[in-house]
Amino acid sequence: MRHLIMTTSQTFLRPANPDDVDRITDLHTLARTAYYQAGGVSDVELTSSDAYSSRRESWMRAVQSSDRTVLCAEREGELVGILAMGPPYEADVDVTTVGQLYQIHVRPGIWGQGIGSYLHAAFVQFLRDASLATGVLEAWERNSRAQAFYARHGWKPDGHHRPGPGNANYVRMRLTLDPEV
Protein backbone atom coordinates (compact mmCIF):
# COMPACT_ATOMS: atom_id res chain seq x y z
CA MET A 1 0.00 0.00 0.00
CA ARG A 2 2.11 2.85 -1.29
CA HIS A 3 -0.57 5.15 -2.68
CA LEU A 4 -2.98 7.71 -1.32
CA ILE A 5 -6.48 6.50 -0.52
CA MET A 6 -9.42 8.82 0.06
CA THR A 7 -12.25 7.60 2.19
CA THR A 8 -15.80 8.91 2.02
CA SER A 9 -15.33 11.04 5.14
CA GLN A 10 -12.53 13.16 3.65
CA THR A 11 -9.99 11.14 5.62
CA PHE A 12 -6.87 10.27 3.65
CA LEU A 13 -4.75 7.21 4.43
CA ARG A 14 -1.14 7.32 3.31
CA PRO A 15 2.15 5.65 4.18
CA ALA A 16 4.04 7.35 7.00
CA ASN A 17 7.52 8.75 6.47
CA PRO A 18 10.26 9.92 8.86
CA ASP A 19 8.97 13.51 8.71
CA ASP A 20 5.73 12.27 10.34
CA VAL A 21 7.37 10.69 13.40
CA ASP A 22 7.01 13.68 15.75
CA ARG A 23 3.30 14.06 14.90
CA ILE A 24 2.79 10.29 15.18
CA THR A 25 4.49 10.21 18.58
CA ASP A 26 2.39 13.15 19.80
CA LEU A 27 -0.86 11.52 18.67
CA HIS A 28 0.17 8.17 20.17
CA THR A 29 0.99 9.90 23.45
CA LEU A 30 -2.42 11.62 23.56
CA ALA A 31 -4.31 8.41 22.78
CA ARG A 32 -2.40 6.16 25.18
CA THR A 33 -2.68 8.75 27.96
CA ALA A 34 -6.47 8.76 27.53
CA TYR A 35 -6.90 5.00 27.87
CA TYR A 36 -4.17 4.37 30.45
CA GLN A 37 -5.45 7.19 32.69
CA ALA A 38 -8.95 5.76 32.42
CA GLY A 39 -7.46 2.40 33.46
CA GLY A 40 -5.74 3.81 36.54
CA VAL A 41 -2.12 4.26 35.39
CA SER A 42 -0.50 7.23 37.14
CA ASP A 43 0.32 10.47 35.32
CA VAL A 44 3.98 10.05 36.30
CA GLU A 45 4.21 6.86 34.25
CA LEU A 46 2.46 8.50 31.31
CA THR A 47 4.34 11.82 31.12
CA SER A 48 7.94 10.66 31.45
CA SER A 49 10.24 12.29 28.89
CA ASP A 50 12.24 9.04 28.72
CA ALA A 51 9.09 7.13 27.80
CA TYR A 52 8.26 9.74 25.14
CA SER A 53 11.76 9.45 23.66
CA SER A 54 11.46 5.67 23.62
CA ARG A 55 8.08 5.88 21.81
CA ARG A 56 9.57 8.26 19.26
CA GLU A 57 12.51 5.93 18.60
CA SER A 58 10.12 2.98 18.23
CA TRP A 59 8.00 4.88 15.72
CA MET A 60 11.08 5.90 13.73
CA ARG A 61 12.20 2.26 13.57
CA ALA A 62 8.70 1.20 12.48
CA VAL A 63 8.46 3.87 9.77
CA GLN A 64 11.90 2.96 8.41
CA SER A 65 11.41 -0.81 8.71
CA SER A 66 11.22 -2.96 5.61
CA ASP A 67 8.77 -5.42 7.19
CA ARG A 68 6.42 -3.04 8.99
CA THR A 69 3.81 -0.71 7.53
CA VAL A 70 2.72 2.50 9.22
CA LEU A 71 -0.19 4.48 7.78
CA CYS A 72 -1.27 7.99 8.67
CA ALA A 73 -4.90 9.08 8.56
CA GLU A 74 -5.23 12.78 7.75
CA ARG A 75 -8.21 15.06 7.62
CA GLU A 76 -7.76 18.61 6.32
CA GLY A 77 -3.99 18.31 6.81
CA GLU A 78 -4.27 17.19 10.44
CA LEU A 79 -2.99 13.80 11.59
CA VAL A 80 -6.07 12.15 13.09
CA GLY A 81 -5.05 8.49 13.24
CA ILE A 82 -2.24 6.00 12.83
CA LEU A 83 -1.98 2.30 12.05
CA ALA A 84 1.06 0.05 12.44
CA MET A 85 1.11 -3.54 11.18
CA GLY A 86 3.44 -6.29 10.07
CA PRO A 87 4.62 -9.77 11.03
CA PRO A 88 3.62 -11.21 14.43
CA TYR A 89 5.90 -10.69 17.44
CA GLU A 90 5.16 -13.87 19.35
CA ALA A 91 6.99 -17.11 18.50
CA ASP A 92 3.80 -19.18 18.85
CA VAL A 93 2.17 -17.38 15.90
CA ASP A 94 2.76 -18.67 12.35
CA VAL A 95 4.18 -15.84 10.25
CA THR A 96 3.12 -17.62 7.04
CA THR A 97 -0.60 -17.27 7.84
CA VAL A 98 -0.84 -14.41 10.37
CA GLY A 99 -0.24 -10.66 10.33
CA GLN A 100 -0.20 -8.44 13.42
CA LEU A 101 -2.03 -5.20 13.99
CA TYR A 102 0.46 -3.49 16.30
CA GLN A 103 -1.43 -0.28 16.94
CA ILE A 104 -4.40 1.79 15.89
CA HIS A 105 -4.64 5.20 17.51
CA VAL A 106 -7.17 7.93 16.84
CA ARG A 107 -6.87 11.44 18.23
CA PRO A 108 -8.99 11.73 21.39
CA GLY A 109 -11.91 14.08 20.88
CA ILE A 110 -12.75 12.68 17.48
CA TRP A 111 -13.33 9.07 18.48
CA GLY A 112 -16.50 7.58 17.01
CA GLN A 113 -16.18 9.33 13.62
CA GLY A 114 -15.14 6.21 11.68
CA ILE A 115 -11.40 6.87 11.53
CA GLY A 116 -10.55 3.74 13.50
CA SER A 117 -12.78 1.67 11.24
CA TYR A 118 -11.01 3.06 8.13
CA LEU A 119 -7.67 2.13 9.66
CA HIS A 120 -9.01 -1.30 10.58
CA ALA A 121 -10.21 -1.81 7.00
CA ALA A 122 -6.70 -0.95 5.80
CA PHE A 123 -5.33 -3.67 8.10
CA VAL A 124 -7.79 -6.22 6.71
CA GLN A 125 -6.71 -5.22 3.18
CA PHE A 126 -3.07 -5.64 4.28
CA LEU A 127 -3.89 -9.22 5.36
CA ARG A 128 -5.69 -9.96 2.09
CA ASP A 129 -2.90 -8.44 -0.03
CA ALA A 130 -0.37 -10.65 1.80
CA SER A 131 -2.65 -13.75 1.50
CA LEU A 132 -2.84 -14.01 5.29
CA ALA A 133 -5.97 -15.61 6.76
CA THR A 134 -5.59 -14.37 10.33
CA GLY A 135 -4.77 -11.21 12.24
CA VAL A 136 -3.58 -10.90 15.82
CA LEU A 137 -3.35 -7.91 18.12
CA GLU A 138 -2.93 -7.14 21.80
CA ALA A 139 -5.30 -4.91 23.74
CA TRP A 140 -4.71 -3.76 27.30
CA GLU A 141 -7.26 -5.55 29.47
CA ARG A 142 -8.46 -2.30 31.08
CA ASN A 143 -9.04 -0.66 27.71
CA SER A 144 -12.63 -1.81 27.31
CA ARG A 145 -13.24 0.76 24.56
CA ALA A 146 -10.56 -0.82 22.34
CA GLN A 147 -11.69 -4.35 23.11
CA ALA A 148 -15.29 -3.45 22.23
CA PHE A 149 -14.10 -1.80 18.98
CA TYR A 150 -12.19 -4.91 17.96
CA ALA A 151 -15.04 -7.24 18.99
CA ARG A 152 -17.40 -5.24 16.72
CA HIS A 153 -14.95 -5.96 13.90
CA GLY A 154 -14.94 -9.72 14.59
CA TRP A 155 -11.90 -10.12 16.87
CA LYS A 156 -11.98 -12.66 19.72
CA PRO A 157 -9.60 -13.22 22.65
CA ASP A 158 -7.44 -16.31 22.06
CA GLY A 159 -6.43 -16.95 25.69
CA HIS A 160 -2.88 -15.58 25.45
CA HIS A 161 -1.89 -12.83 27.92
CA ARG A 162 1.28 -10.98 28.80
CA PRO A 163 2.01 -8.43 31.55
CA GLY A 164 1.22 -4.80 30.81
CA PRO A 165 1.27 -1.47 32.66
CA GLY A 166 -0.67 -0.83 35.85
CA ASN A 167 -0.54 -4.50 36.91
CA ALA A 168 -2.92 -5.37 34.06
CA ASN A 169 -2.32 -7.75 31.19
CA TYR A 170 -2.37 -7.37 27.47
CA VAL A 171 -4.97 -9.72 25.97
CA ARG A 172 -4.24 -11.19 22.56
CA MET A 173 -7.14 -11.22 20.13
CA ARG A 174 -7.54 -12.95 16.75
CA LEU A 175 -9.43 -12.15 13.61
CA THR A 176 -10.08 -14.91 11.09
CA LEU A 177 -10.92 -13.58 7.65
CA ASP A 178 -13.75 -15.04 5.65
CA PRO A 179 -12.51 -16.19 2.26
CA GLU A 180 -13.22 -13.56 -0.40
CA VAL A 181 -15.97 -14.54 -2.76
Rank of each mutant, 00 (worst) to 15 (best):
S53V: 04
F123W: 12
R75C: 12
R55W: 13
W140V: 06
V98Y: 04
L132C: 05
L101Y: 03
G109A: 11
E78C: 05
R145V: 10
L79T: 05
G77F: 14
S58D: 02
D50E: 15
F126G: 01
F123Y: 13
G81T: 10
D43E: 15
A130F: 06
V70W: 07
H105T: 03
A38W: 07
Y35D: 11
L101Q: 02
V63W: 01
S53I: 03
N143V: 09
Y52D: 01
G112Q: 13
W59S: 02
P87Q: 14
D50A: 15
Y36W: 13
F126T: 04
R145F: 03
Q125W: 11
E74K: 05
Y35E: 11
E78I: 05
A73D: 05
L46C: 07
L127R: 03
A62R: 08
G109F: 10
R75N: 12
S49D: 15
R55D: 09
V98N: 04
Q37R: 15
Q147M: 15
A38H: 12
L79V: 07
D50I: 11
I82Y: 01
I104T: 06
V95S: 13
T134D: 08
R145N: 11
W111I: 11
R142P: 00
Q100L: 02
P88N: 06
G99C: 11
S117K: 14
Q64N: 14
L132H: 04
F123L: 08
L101F: 05
R107Q: 13
S42C: 10
E74W: 05
P88G: 05
G40D: 08
M85I: 03
C72A: 14
D50H: 15
S42R: 14
G135L: 07
A34T: 14
T97R: 15
D94H: 03
Y35C: 11
V98P: 00
L79F: 03
P88K: 04
E57H: 09
R142A: 07
L132P: 00
D92P: 00
V63Y: 01
W140A: 07
Q125M: 09
L71S: 03
L132W: 03
L137D: 01
G109C: 10
D67P: 00
E45L: 14
M85Q: 13
E141C: 12
L132S: 01
Q37P: 00
V136E: 03
F123V: 06
R145Q: 13
V41C: 11
G109Q: 10
D50S: 14
E76D: 15
V98E: 04
A91V: 07
N143C: 08
R142L: 05
D129H: 13
G77T: 12
D92T: 11
